[in-house]
Design a protein around this nucleic acid. Structure first.
Lengths: 218, 218
DNA sequence: GTCAAGTTTTTTGTATACAAGAATTACAAT
DNA sequence: ATTGTAATTCTTGTATACAAAAAACTTGAC
């Protein structure tokens, strides 16, 4: 499937913004980026539209587009919403999940455990994503799955950062186990609660990390 | 604030799609619509991007854009997510809502009641929207507010349809009262539960309406 | 008559040209 | 020196021109 240049550029810019290659409030210069990507302004403008609509940039008419890095407050807000979405996924999945999917979850979890023991945060990160992806799918609600993936992707780089907090990996693993157990038991309430706190705690941990980094900088 | 032509067209097309002026799967012809709106293809293409990203249309590379009307299943899925978001709004608002906002909610509710008595579904619809808008705001979570508004807007036309079901207006009013009471009492759990069922029931009612309409058509 | 291959036509994607609005700078007046 | 204004420059928004790919049509063989 041949993709359009504008799509490729949108992905590229998205990654660059999420990686922090652009500072908050920085203006994205059309002609400059057009030269950099060796395309005309047209596909760039289409990419900008995508960024603006997914909240990564702000488009001010006749002024240009500016990257919008979420601040600590907005991040916590986003994690709060993510927690609610994942809780719903868990609640629905508890009643709908297949045995095969439960197996997959356990397998992903085992790989997670290996990553923790190997101190391989990259691997943990990958498997963690797999774990949550299965959950979204098993909610049996396509729209919910789609929205969850969208927000998950947006929070990706911050999740990663948050994993640096000491002891977080092991704690996260234990939470995963509790989630799978609740799903296996078909306990919707327990699954929802476990997921909600699992995600919400990430926002809090992130907050702590930010605060400590700021303190260290002074 | 001068808006761009592409924005105006996007809004226009959005309304047309939501109004049902375009059938599901219908192709949106660039040159045809360009002529209709008296603009070139460029702003139209930008409008298409917006439609595609908000889920109202599907953009297939090198093939064109096609309107995507959600089917009954997808609608119920969307209401399910909306219920979770509104429940979160209620949960947060229970702890954060101001006295002034509580007053506003009661006022909006009173106007709702008047509309019910006057059998004025349009007015009810308006006030209902106001009611929920206050709630989103009072969650104190800007991101949640934004996401709730987005989904609310998308479900707007279907909510309206659902209000036709006999007795729904009165029931909805009672639910509103319960929500405000829970908020006033600062009972987060009760507020969340009340909102969740208030919204979820809309999806179900809608399902019934669809089913009965289909039956009537045969 | 049907199916297939090749050609024409249509339509999308991209580049460039042009128009209009905003920012900046130069300059004059106080 | 500062402030207000006019002119210039720069940037965005829109139109048009061109390229490439897909759809539609024609023609020919079976």
């Amino acid at each position: 499937m041949e993709r359009k240049r504008s799509d490729i550029i949108a992905d590229e810019l998205e990654s660059l913004i999420l990686d922090g290659s652009f500072a908050d409030g920085e203006r994205l210069d059309e002609s400059q980026l057009a030269e950099r990507f060796n395309v005309s302004r047209t596909p760039l403008r289409e990419a900008f539209q995508r960024l603006a609509l997914s909240g990564l940039a702000e488009q001010i008419p006749r002024r240009g587009v500016f990257v919008r890095q979420p601040g600590p407050v907005e991040l916590i807000e986003m994690f709060e919403v993510m927690a609610a979405l994942e809780a719903l996924c868990g609640e629905l999945a508890a009643a709908r999940i297949t045995d095969a999917a439960l197996e997959d979850l356990r397998a992903a979890n085992a790989r997670c455990q290996q990553a923790v023991e190997a101190r391989d945060t990259d691997a943990y990160y990958r498997e963690n994503e797999c774990f949550h992806g299965i959950l979204y799918r098993q909610s049996g609600n396509g729209f919910l799955e789609q929205e969850s993936r969208r927000l998950h992707r947006r929070l990706q780089p911050f999740r990663r950062l948050q994993l640096r907090v000491r002891g977080r990996l092991a704690q996260s693993m234990a939470e995963h186990e509790a989630i799978v157990d609740a799903l296996e038991a078909g306990d919707a309430k327990a699954a929802a609660a476990a997921l909600k706190s699992h995600v919400a705690v990430q926002g809090e941990k992130f907050h702590h990390l930010i605060a400590s980094l700021r303190q260290a900088a002074e």
